[in-house]
Amino acid sequence: MTAVIMDGIVLGLQFGILGVGLTLVYGLGGVLNLAHGQMAVAGAMVISRLTDGGMGTFLAVAIGIVAVGLLGMVIDLTLMKAVYGEEGEGRTLLGLLLMLGVGFIIDGVLEWRYPIEALTLRVAGDPIDILGVSMRRGSLVASAIILLVGALLVAFFRLTTFGRATRSVIQDENGARLVGVNPSVVRTSIFALSGILGGIVAVTRAMTTPVGSTDGIELTIFALIVAVVGGLGSVSGAFLAGILLGIVSTVSAFYIGSYITTIILLVVCAVTIVIRPSGLLGVRS
């Protein structure tokens, strides 16, 4: 049981950072990025191609992560401009539909060009014992990276001027404009950051399981579930929900079966919306 829970935490950390990327973009501009997972997988494919071509792993990983960040930035500066020009539910709807389309484009291109490609990043070394459970190095390194990234994110949002500005746009966009924050700049930067986080998801996931070219939709769905359960717009909520759902996921996969697991997660997501639309830590109704 301990081993299952430990695996759950490893998976949950990945879920968490996946959810953070989605939740940030939604919180800032009301865009539900239904291409988030596909963008992450695109990053994985870049890394896979580069390492196959003989490039060193670290450099390839860095390029892959930056590439997803740039992709996010480009999407924000082009398609999303139209979305941000709308207001209220029209904006939400347009954002959702456009990103759904973008997701299909990325997914289709990857499936067409690299139908069987998958990224695996091997972390050498023997398993390490933690609480009596033998943990693979890959899982530990992946978790450590995510925790570090999480800590950096917290520091960024709490302590830096730009981090505060980001939170101000999430909490009250007009208030943010009145103190001199330019919401467009914040949104573009955060869309890029969200892409970078997606790239990090791809990399850390590749340390524990192969990331295939067609896994994008699944990642998007996990991101969506985590973001909703944590409360759309809440970064700490996404991390918390990620870890909880990671544990739920491995426990139910272990004791019940894997197809039920996805259904359980989806039901948790739907029930959260019905019972508490603001999620675990979201405050906006």
Binding site: L79, A82, L94, L97, L98, L100, G101, V102, G103, F104, I105, I106, D107, G108, V109, E111, W112, P115
Partner: peptide
Amino acid sequence: AQLREVFYGIVTVFLFL
């Protein structure tokens, strides 16, 4: 068949834009 998905993606984006 693989291009169909790309096509639907592009059409979705284009139509709604």
